[in-house]
């Protein structure tokens, strides 16, 4: 699972890295919707080329990208195998009880496969080129309208940002605690289910205790630096919209038009 890249961020300076994260998030979501419009080989080809173009724009090494999505592809293929045998239609090649291998099933499976791969590629692209910080700023910016219905958007945004900021810290700690317990003879990933569950306790409790310590200290530090939830604050970080972001919207609009014409 270590090789799976979706959800991870790889710093860089490509056009895609520099795009407005709000634009990137909305467009990725939009793209996923468009993918569901595709219904023939040509439309999938267009989507595939578009995705490839986007990947190339990130200037990440293709081999890394490929290795990164490979585990997901294997998972999809496995799901599809099951799917293939339950879809009927067109020419039936082979049948045994409820299982059948039909032309419609195969075609359908291929389409679903392409659809999922394209979606995974695009989502991986989003997380690989957008720092968690940008994602959280984008989310809070997109949430701004909710202020009208008295959602404490600023507090939620700060919480989100702090939570993200502590992910690496807690990950490091988890590894350290796991190692410390392994050094005391705990076996992770072996033994019966009950034994495995038991092996989690010596990790969870220290991790929980340490998270509490972080929280207490952080509370002091934030208070000492003048943070109060009952007072307004100014904002340092703002997201800026550039021409490249407008261009990206145009590109996605063009894609929509093309798909609309080539689909069956």
């Amino acid at each position: 699972m270590n090789k799976l890249m979706i959800g991870r961020y790889l710093p860089g300076h490509s056009v895609v890295h520099q795009m407005d994260p709000r634009g990137k998030m909305v467009l990725t979501f939009y793209f996923i919707c468009i993918v569901f419009m595709a219904n023939n080989i040509w439309s999938y080809l267009v989507l595939g080329l578009f995705t490839l173009g986007a990947v190339l724009l990130t200037r990440l090494k293709l081999i890394y990208f490929w290795r990164g999505i490979q585990p997901a592809i294997i998972l999809i293929l496995f799901t599809l195998l099951i799917q293939v045998f339950f879809t009927r239609g067109g020419q039936i090649y082979w049948q045994w009880g409820p299982f059948a291998l039909s032309s419609a099933g195969v075609v359908n499976a291929w389409f679903i496969f392409f659809r999922l791969v394209i979606i995974i590629c695009m989502s991986t692209l989003l997380t690989l080129t957008t720092s968690p910080l940008d994602i959280s700023s984008a989310l809070s910016s997109l949430m701004t309208p909710l202020k009208w219905i008295r959602v404490p958007v600023d507090i939620i945004a700060l919480m989100l940002s702090i939570a993200l900021r502590f992910v690496p810290t807690l990950m490091d700690e988890t590894v350290r605690i796991m190692n410390a317990q392994r050094a005391r003879g705990v076996d992770f990933g072996s033994g019966s289910l009950l034994q495995q569950i038991k092996a989690i306790v010596p990790i969870l409790i220290p991790l929980f205790v340490s998270a509490m310590h972080h929280a207490e200290d952080l509370d002091d530090a934030m208070t000492a630096r003048g943070y109060r939830t009952d007072a307004p604050r100014t904002t340092y970080r703002i997201i800026q919209w550039h021409r490249r972001d407008t261009l990206s919207i145009i590109a996605f609009a063009a894609l929509t038009v093309v798909i609309f014409f080539v689909r069956a």
């Binding site: 720092s131 968690p132 910080l133 959280s136 940002s161 702090i162 993200l164 900021r165 810290t169 310590h213 972080h214 200290d217 952080l218 530090a221 934030m222 630096r225 943070y227």
Partner: peptide
């Protein structure tokens, strides 16, 4: 603790 007072991203 350097870790526990770093609030910003």
């Amino acid at each position: 603790n350097p870790e526990n007072q770093f609030v910003g991203a």
